[in-house]
Design a protein around this nucleic acid. Structure first.
Lengths: 233, 233
DNA sequence: CTATGATGTGACCGAGCGGTCATATGACTG
DNA sequence: CAGTCATATGACCGCTCGGTCACATCATAG
């Protein structure tokens, strides 16, 4: 955790430092992210940085937790209209709010993506529970879908979690790349992306998931015998 | 491209250098991948390295092209039993062969993953065509599926390509992480993964894709009016 | 043998890194 | 005023980096 000194800082200064840190860790590996760059861009002395954080790793862990925390806060601040809605309507909401978050804090999104999917500079020490809690969230959603009757109970739950989590996680970055949106512009709150109409994409993805997950009226296709869903690993 | 000197090397030595280079670029960013580490592990002098490659970037580009080329070769060496088979059977084959490749050369897979999905140290200079050709491959597959009648022609093609490519790309890494397979062991040809029975996972993924993509006998659900597939962006 | 040209080598260079520390600054206390 | 304490600073340290270069090695040709 950052030292108390950091939290005693005026908010502007603290935010500026965090912004520069996020930018650095969003565009570089843990190894190549440079404290020297961060302090230079934030306009503080190297020594000051080490009054705020124990070391590089301290900052890194803080940023990753921050990313998770901010996303949680964002979701909580934009709750679905009806908490008991149909699973796929709920997913449509989740996809939309998740995208809005990713478009407004794209660099924070990259920090999390790197931490979860590309590098683990300190083993699974911290990340593990962040990733796991996201997966558990999807799992409970899908479980709810099964109970609602909107998800086929024959579906393999692990596979369903894999599919939904990967597609949802990739969705934002895919859209950013496809539309060639600039992370800088997005971060500055550029209104550019508001011109985007994503309802079609959203609809295509959700309706694909619905077709793939919902109970299937026809028999389980051509392999009717091995439909067990968890053949003890 | 590497200098002629590199290709004049005895095969063992060349392969050893490449193996160490792949290992380094698989576990590090472009920036943090270290030539010093590579030459140390390969047992050659720093000066020798620069007889073989122009510079770090030369090696990097070569490795990325190599990864793409090796995967193409692997697919070509394990062709599907019947080239005219049903789309989803074809996908089952592709998933299986792709997984086998990823399990036998996992580090090469990481080099490609980093290059395509996490970093572009030199703009889109080289990678673009590698990624694009993979996407075009999936697109033509799906197009074929439409013509076969196994894919719903109403499906949005871009979304379908997104879904299939992301899931296929994530599948191998997901399995490696889930089973906690060691990249070292896999690279050494450890037989460990042969004990794995992946047919169930495979079947779950493919049958999910089939449900999601196949023509839907029922009406287009509850939003029958806006079924256009590309409302000019 | 010598001469030549390709290949191998590691000390060396300037730069940037994470991190430290003696010192400076400034606000508050008495 | 002096004394104290939290904070700010940048020169500095040891290290590693990508890359270079003068030189060593060696096979072949004459």
């Amino acid at each position: 955790m950052p030292k108390p000194t950091f939290f005693n800082l005026p908010e502007d200064k603290r935010d500026l430092i965090l912004e520069m840190a996020i930018e650095e860790f969003a565009s570089n590996d843990y190894e190549s992210a440079s404290i020297s760059q961060i302090v230079a861009r934030a306009g503080i002395a190297k020594g000051s940085f080490y009054q705020y954080f124990e070391d590089k790793r301290d900052l890194y862990f803080y940023l990753v937790e921050l990313a998770a925390e901010e996303k949680r806060r964002f979701l909580a601040a934009h709750p679905p209209p009806d908490p008991k809605m149909n699973l796929f309507d709920y997913m449509r909401w989740l996809l939309r709010v998740g995208l809005t978050f990713e478009l407004s804090r794209p660099k924070l999104g990259w920090v999390a993506f790197r931490a979860i999917h590309v590098e683990r500079p300190f083993g699974d020490e911290v990340l593990d529970h962040v990733q796991r809690s996201a997966l558990d969230y999807y799992r409970s959603l899908l479980q709810m879908g099964v109970e609602q009757g909107s998800v086929d109970p024959e579906i393999d739950m692990d596979m369903a979690v894999f599919i939904v989590s990967r597609l949802f996680a990739a969705y934002g970055r895919h859209l950013i790349e496809r539309e060639q949106l600039s992370l800088e512009d997005l971060d500055k709150g550029s209104p550019a992306y508001r011109d985007l109409d994503v309802t079609d994409m959203e609809e295509h993805l959700i309706s694909f998931l619905e077709r793939g997950l919902r109970p299937c009226p026809r028999a389980e296709k051509d392999r009717p015998d091995d439909a067990d869903q968890e053949p003890a690993p």
